[in-house]
Amino acid sequence: MPHLAIDGLNASYKNLKVLHDICLDVERSEVVSLIGPSGSGKSTLLRTLVGVNKPTSGKVTLAQRTLDYSSASSLKQARDSMAIVFQQYNLFQNMTVIGNVTIAPLKIKKWQRAEVEEHAHSLLQKVGLGHKLKAYPDELSGGQQQRVAIARALALKPQLLLLDEITSALDPELVGEVLDIIRGLARDGMTMLIVSHEMGFVREVSSRVVMMDQGRIVEIGTPQQIFDAPKETRTRDFTARVLSH
C-alpha cells in the first residue's frame, strides 16, 4: 500500500480547470519530483494535497486513510502528518527563527517544551543556522530563510514532506545550501514530493520523476528514463529545452 495514493484528482482555480485526473502513488521513503513548464499544475497539485486549494473530485489516501477535503477534522488529521515548504518561505515575520520553528509543535501539537526546543536546536544546527536562533526573518538572506522554513516543516515530524519550488526565489549561489539539506533528508529516508526546476538536482535525488503539462501527468518514470529516454514527445521537448542551458 503506497504512503500517498492520488486517484483521479481534479481541481479548479477560479472556474479554470487546473488539474485533470491526476493519478500518482508515492511509496514510503520515496522521493518523487514533479517537473514541467510553468502553469502545468505542479504547485497546484501540492497546494491541493494540503487543502489550500480544494479538489473538485478524486480520491487521496494518506497512510491508508482516505482524505475528505470538505471535512475539517479529516483535513486536520491529514495536515497533522504532512508539511509543506513554500517558494516564498512564508515565515512568520513577527517571530524569531526559533519561534518560527517551535510555535506549531508547542501550541498546535502541544508537545513537551524541553523536547521541542531540543529538536528545534538540532534541526537548526543541521541546516547551519544554530547561531541565528534569535534573529528575525527580515535579518536573514533568502537562503537562510528557506533553511528556517525547512527546519520549521521538519519540526512537525512529518510523514510526508512537500517542497514547492523551494529554490526558485533564491540567488543562484544560495541554491546549493538549500539543496544540500534536501539531499540529506532523502538519504535519511524522508518521503518527499518535490516541485523543482533544478534538473540536475531532480535527476540525482529522485526515485521517480513525474512530467506534467497543462494540468495533466504526461509521463512517470525513473530519472534516467525521463531525462535520457523519454517516451512522450512533450517530455522530450521539455527536457531537451531545460537541459540545453
Partner: peptide, 23 residues
C-alpha cells in the same frame, strides 16, 4: 499581513483564532 503567512499557518493546523492572535 501577507496572505502566504496565513496559508502556512493553516497548513500547520492553526485555528482561525490562533492565526489572528499569534500571527
Amino acid at each position: 499581513v501577507p496572505r502566504q503567512q496565513v496559508e502556512a499557518a493553516e497548513v500547520m493546523n492553526f485555528s482561525r483564532w490562533q492565526i489572528i492572535h499569534m500571527i
